[in-house]
Amino acid sequence: MSREQYLAGAAAAVLVVALLAAVVVPGVVAVPSDEPLRPGPVRVAEDVAVAPGDVGGATAELELQTRVRHDGNPARNVSVRFRAYDAESGLLKAEETVDLGTLDAEGSVPVDTTLRVDREGGYVVETTVFRDGEAVDSRRRQVAGMEALVPSYAQTAVRFTDSEAVPPLSVSVDAVDEAANRTTLRVAASLTNGGDAVNDDLRVEFVARQADSNLVAARASADVGSIRPGRTVDAAATLTVPSEYNYYVDAALYKDGVLVGTARSVANLDPTERIAANETTREVEFEVSDFEGGGAGGGGVPTEAGAERTTGAQTPGFTAGVAAVALLAAALVARRRSR
């Protein structure tokens, strides 16, 4: 027998032994394990929805809702952390964490919580998904105009009438006493109930302030009573003030002792000078918008790649690949020696 034939026979023997061992000896060749190699990916499925909840005088609740998506193998110890940062200072103002436990089924699950923050300024709301203590995805949204939220105790559908034909507050001269140098003004506030229920326990307070000194010259109040839905009523009173001065006339609407609205007009009694009501106002509204610049997760892109369902690690031992490598190595050795 030549040397080449001997080496080829030895390589074949190694292959036969490896294949027999795979059949006879359990665990010699690796087999797929039932244990997953890595947990399935989880991510924020949609931007967090923000809505105002209970509103107090100094604080307000932000009701947060989102969904978390899970795919692939079971993911253990999944939680969602919600944080509210002050939009100007960046300081953390509120935080809540919701534990989801183990996610087995593929799909999305709803997650919601409530954060209580100060009723002023704006906030950046951050939603972060954790798996086994590791942050894997994050989203951000911006909330502005918290001061526009009306406290629960001050909520009413009655407002000063907003119409070009009907002013919210009208002022007229009712009488003049030249001997006493006094003028009686008739002031009337127009109020409209824009809601669906009857509103009562309403009161309007009128104040006349001398324009130059800002001193209160007169005040009066009027009980409104009940206003049915969609109806408009007037609350009127008289104010007696010194003549030949100009006045700012303010009307304040109270519901059960809570200030819910104001209106202003003027009374020009000085013939040499006139004033106008300052109608410059800045509308503040509660607003939720996307956070420009993205959060820790960029626009919600997970920090991990979505993995397919995988198998566990292999047990130590020979594999068919090892046997093939051994056969190839023996053939190469035989070829070199034949040269």
Score class of each variant (00 low, 15 high):
Asp223His: 05
Val260Asp: 08
Thr238Leu: 01
Thr240His: 09
Gly230Arg: 02
Ala217Ile: 07
Asn181His: 11
Lys255Leu: 01
Arg264Leu: 12
Gly230Ile: 09
Val249Ala: 01
Leu215Pro: 05
Val266Gly: 12
Leu191His: 06
Asn181Phe: 10
Leu202Ile: 10
Val173Arg: 12
Thr192Gln: 03
Val187Asp: 01
Pro242Cys: 10
Val216Ser: 06
Val173Cys: 12
Asp234Glu: 07
Val207Met: 03
Asn214Trp: 06
Asp177His: 05
Gly230Cys: 13
Asp177Met: 11
Leu259Asp: 05
Ser226Asn: 08
Gly225Cys: 08
Val176Gly: 09
Ala180Thr: 03
Glu244Val: 07
Thr262Leu: 02
Tyr247Pro: 11
Val204Met: 06
Ala220Cys: 05
Ser221Gln: 12
Val204Trp: 06
Ala208Asp: 12
Lys255Pro: 02
Asp174Glu: 09
Tyr248Gln: 04
Val173Lys: 12
Thr262Met: 07
Asp174Val: 08
Glu178Cys: 00
Ala263His: 06
Thr262Ala: 04
Val241Ala: 09
Asp200Val: 07
Val233Cys: 03
Gly261Phe: 07
Asp223Gly: 15
Gly261Ala: 15
Gly261Met: 13
Ala217Pro: 13
Val176Phe: 11
Asp196Gln: 13
Ser226Gly: 10
Asp212Gln: 10
Ala180Phe: 02
Arg209Pro: 00
Glu205Gly: 05
Asp201Gln: 11
Asn193Val: 15
Val241Thr: 07
Val258Gln: 15
Ser190Leu: 03
Ala175Pro: 05
Leu253Tyr: 03
Ser221Glu: 12
Ala217Leu: 07
Ala267Asp: 14
Arg203Phe: 02
Asp212His: 02
Gly257Ser: 11
Thr183Gln: 11
Leu202Trp: 10
Asp196His: 06
Tyr245Arg: 15
Asn214Pro: 00
Asp201Cys: 04
Leu239Asn: 15
